[in-house]
């Protein structure tokens, strides 16, 4: 626990200096606030931009931040120093996960300010769940890649699919069919309805399936490579 807290503190200190991930953390919340206030077109879905950017945020920020942090520490070999100072891989990954999740939740809270008060808890619940899946996916990539270059080249396309498929689905039925298997698309549907009352059976199954796949992949990656 103490070691995990040390990692979280280290990351918090790094947040404002690490420009690449700082942008990821604040870009979508900022765009949401701006667009929701600036654009008002007749007949547009209510909170259109919040719903859209929320899903893109889930698909990009946690995944990219987790991958970036882990792969940088691997490349610079600071991770090795931590492990030699008696941090266990589990403590390290927990620290990074908790850190990324917390920062993303702050971003989600900013986004939720545009919603009605009653919608906020459900919105944050969906966001929090989505972040966890993305963090697991990001950790897989971080564990499997040797350096930042490989990590970026693997995470970028995955991030694109996760973040853009839900948006493109709004315009294209074929894409919608395919993207239905992605957790970001399912969370988009949940956020569209913004309630726990009518969560669909298939949707829930797909989400659970995605969660299991992420956890399984993570465990496989971890068992195969550890943090080597």
């Amino acid at each position: 626990m103490h070691n995990t807290v040390v990692i979280i503190k280290k990351q918090l200190r790094d947040t404002v200096r690490n420009k690449t991930i700082l942008i990821q953390f604040i870009l979508f919340p900022l765009m949401t606030v701006i667009m929701e206030n600036a654009v008002n077109i007749e007949g547009m879905q209510e909170h259109f931009f919040t719903r859209l950017f929320a899903v893109m945020y889930i698909g990009m920020a946690p995944l990219m931040a987790t991958t970036a942090v882990i792969s940088e520490e691997k490349e610079k070999n600071t991770l090795r120093v931590l492990l030699m100072a008696d941090i266990t891989p589990v403590q390290y990954l927990a620290g990074i996960g908790v850190y990324v999740w917390t920062i993303c939740m702050l971003g989600a809270a900013v986004m939720s300010a545009t919603l009605r008060a009653g919608e906020r808890p459900v919105f944050l619940l969906f966001m929090g769940a989505g972040f966890i899946l993305s963090i697991l996916a990001g950790a897989c990539i971080g564990i499997l890649s040797k350096n930042q270059m490989t990590a970026t080249s693997v995470s970028l396309p995955i991030m694109m699919v996760l973040a853009f498929a839900p948006m493109l689905s709004m315009f294209n039925k074929t894409i919608e069919k395919f993207s239905a298997v992605a957790y970001t698309q399912q969370i988009k549907l949940l956020i569209d309805r913004m309630s726990l009352a009518d969560v669909s059976g298939t949707g829930t199954l797909i989400l659970i399936g995605n969660a299991l796949a992420c956890i399984l992949l993570f465990l496989l990656a971890y068992r195969k490579k550890g943090l080597e």
């Binding site: 280290k10 200190r13 070999n77 120093v81 030699m84």
Partner: peptide, 12 residues
């Protein structure tokens, strides 16, 4: 342990 490959936190 001091090894050349053991990095430091560049932004710290």
């Amino acid at each position: 342990i001091m090894m050349d490959s053991f990095g430091v936190y560049e932004r710290f």
